[in-house]
Design a protein around this nucleic acid. Sequence first.
DNA 1: CCGGATCCTGGTCGATACTG
DNA 2: CAGTATCGACCAGGATCCGG
Lengths: 120, 120
Amino acid sequence: MCHSEESNAVREFLTKVGDKWSILLIVMLAKTPKHRARFSELHRMVDGISQRMLTTTLRNLERDGLLSREVFAEVPPRVEYELTPLGLTLLGPLQQLVDWIGNNWGSIKKTREHFDECSR
Amino acid sequence: MCHSEESNAVREFLTKVGDKWSILLIVMLAKTPKHRARFSELHRMVDGISQRMLTTTLRNLERDGLLSREVFAEVPPRVEYELTPLGLTLLGPLQQLVDWIGNNWGSIKKTREHFDECSR
DNA sequence: CCGGATCCTGGTCGATACTG
DNA sequence: CAGTATCGACCAGGATCCGG
């Protein structure tokens, strides 16, 4: 308690939603024309994610109301995921962060290498 | 390969910097008057963090060039941490995200509870 | 073929105790 | 006061198999 509900919310958010794949998944979904894609598309888009993690992450995001899941009773089966209105509102803040990362990640990597060299 | 260096950078960033405490620590440091605080202050400000994690996280952030560490040769010893210019540039994008979380975390929690009830 | 569930391992984090 | 060291629990996440 004490130090603001806010920091608590932030910490919980970062723990639950700020995991390795969630944010990236949202960003990738945002890049699709209708903010909508099927399982296998996402699997291809997010390089290096395992099927299990994709399933889990998508479930959690659905659970959080950030995206919705629609199953089509077809053969072969098809499942599509789409950003909800709430999910869409997250895009703005996220894009800022993504831009910052794009601009500064290179510099961070360099700083890090330098730091590691000096403390060797 | 293929899907952009950007998503790669984002993933790496989220893995390294987007861990449980880093962002929260930066946000808390941003709240101090001079963007500067000593170890024990941060320990008190970030509710629930262990000494070990505080040390580790601070080291990593220093390694990334997001904050700087200054040791004073006193008794009792004093160590202060301060956001670097690079760290300060991160504050803008981060604040957007923090605001969003503040506004929407409650709603997410509710959605989640509802979801869990239905699938019980 | 598409999407989900199970099993297992390795890294991460917290608790505790100890130094300069 | 500001760390470091050690240990153990836990869970993220990869490999693999299963259902339709």
